[in-house]
Write a protein that binds this DNA or RNA. Sequence first.
DNA 1: GAAAATAGGATAAGAACAGTCGTATTTTCA
DNA 2: TGAAAATACGACTGTTCTTATCCTATTTTC
Lengths: 134, 134
Amino acid sequence: MLRLSKRVEYGLIALRHFAAIQEGTVCTAKEISQKYNVPHELLAKVLQKLAQARIIQSYQGVRGGYVLVHHPSSIKISHVINAIEHEKPMLAECYADGPESCIIFDDCTIRRPLGKIQKNINHFFHSMSIAEIV
Amino acid sequence: MLRLSKRVEYGLIALRHFAAIQEGTVCTAKEISQKYNVPHELLAKVLQKLAQARIIQSYQGVRGGYVLVHHPSSIKISHVINAIEHEKPMLAECYADGPESCIIFDDCTIRRPLGKIQKNINHFFHSMSIAEIV
DNA sequence: GAAAATAGGATAAGAACAGTCGTATTTTCA
DNA sequence: TGAAAATACGACTGTTCTTATCCTATTTTC
Ligand code: SF4
Ligand code: SF4
């Protein structure tokens, strides 16, 4: 319960890696997967997602790989999660999928109070950047 | 991702119900399940967990049910979660199940930084009581 | 043209979760 | 004293989510 997905963890590890090495260095998925002992195929997909979100830049072909294009301090954890997961990290089903997703929506008395906690978590994810986890 | 379980949601709804009605009133699982349109059997289990944790008092037999025994302001959300879920709400697997649970533990670079967010969430759950969601 | 890398779809195995069922026990009350 | 109503508890099922792997195509370098 309340777990972060491995995909997000792997994404954060990879981005922290980029932030820690010399700026502009190209890294391959293989390099990172070996260094941190994470599954190569899964990490590759995560990096592809991050590339789609323009958080990193991809280069195909031999000698290809990925490069960080923004300064680590401008990459918030919320950006990373949004890029990797199709759904935002929501405490309640209805927050993510709307009123129709929960059959007790109309009778629910805790939706609004839980919103406070949700807001707090959102704020934390949005205020913390990759630069702060190096 | 990052979802609260339905069990916890149902538990919070039930406790908010107790906090909203007159102090000392006995309620049955059936009453609450009907009022909030929640699955009866599942709610019953949740109430049993809350009773085991002494958050509510149970009475068996006809005219039995549950009563709130503490003041709503002294029942923190963290207590409720701990009573219902066997595991505390942890962002990372290793926080809950120890170093052996994650194969990349030794190579993990994000464990400590994520701890800040974990701490923040813990604090929020511990500072918010049932009285505040009525 | 071979090799190394990203891109992306498909699939399978596993775990977690929600919900249901069945039965025992306790207590009230007619 | 027996039926009824409620908690207590374990087992089971079906679904969804998550993780991991596999396979193929494409791009680019050398
Ligand atoms: S309506 Fe209430 S119970 Fe349903 S998902 Fe939203 S917060 Fe949870
Ligand atoms: S060691 Fe790192 S990757 Fe593994 S569970 Fe803990 S935080 Fe997540």
